[in-house]
Amino acid sequence: MIAIGLEGSANKLGVGIISHPSPGKPAIILSNIRHTFVSPPGEGFLPKDTAKHHRSWVVSLVKQAMAEAGVSTRDIDCICYTKGPGMGAPLQSVAVAARMLSLLWGKELVGVNHCVGHIEMGREITGAQNPVVLYVSGGNTQVIAYAEQRYRIFGEALDIAVGNCLDRFARTLEISNDPAPGYNIEQLAKKGKVLLDLPYAVKGMDCSFSGILASIDILAAELKANPEQRDPITGEIITTADLCFTLQEIVYAMLVEITERAMAHVGSDQVLIVGGVGCNERLQEMMGLMANDRGGSVFATDERFCIDNGIMIAHAGLLAYETGFRTPLEESTCTQRFRTDEVFIKWRD
């Protein structure tokens, strides 16, 4: 069976086409393309501009994805789209496009939970069987494990998501949003050495980032006012690279800690990292060190699958479609709030 997936819950518009040859066989990716709306330095992406971006690109992306996959509309079994969670206006634009395709081609719709899309694609690509999942992106921070037909959330950010904390700090520093603010922070952090004092906010398996963002913003303002500050221990001049380094070291240590706690709690030794922040090599490295200490292993994917994409929506949608799930046209809505644990995972034991 073949499905096309449309994703546009944030600033990436992704279209992917996947084929599930037969049960038990690995999925085949026929095409997976995306186009990113990049806002100027110092600014985030606004819903209305992002929605406009998606509307103007969706047709050409679908055409290109179909051409690359070498399939015709007759080969497609269902049209999968992101039902939520995400930003309202971009979600609506993509849902409208999906409905249009459904009517035009006479194919059924499948609304997909974005988070479940990430998890299922991560499992498919890495082959991780039953991992503890760390889902970290611009809008989500969750530690998830599967139990009894649901992806259950063991821990999550109590305020802003980790990616949002990083993105907003990139705005404070006014560094480029191209290709992604988090990527540019990561590159700057590689040059940092001095660990500054920041709060560390872990509560059980939950964590909090807004206080950390406020503190690092204060440090950045102080540095701007007085660029000659030196580290009291080493005597080295403090730079913005040190700020990025500190921020990464602290927030990733928190993420690894809550993941380790969840692993100890459920007795699992596999970790799967998904979501845009999951591309960060420092996070992957730290997670690897932790897993190694526990005799376990880390599974991660690269930017093709970590960052929002259409193929994960197609994959998770097709898994649901194969179990008989359909989204009738009248119910093909989207929603900004759609928790991971609301989805009934019929396709797993």
Partner: peptide, 26 residues
């Protein structure tokens, strides 16, 4: 809008990241 359409080549791979193996804490 500066980005070009990004090609995402379809190469699924199933390699768990092998972390650099530190000496097991003695």
């Amino acid at each position: 809008m500066t980005a070009q359409i990004q090609e995402i080549p379809p190469i699924p791979q199933a390699a768990p990241l092998e972390p650099p193996v530190p000496p097991k804490s003695s």
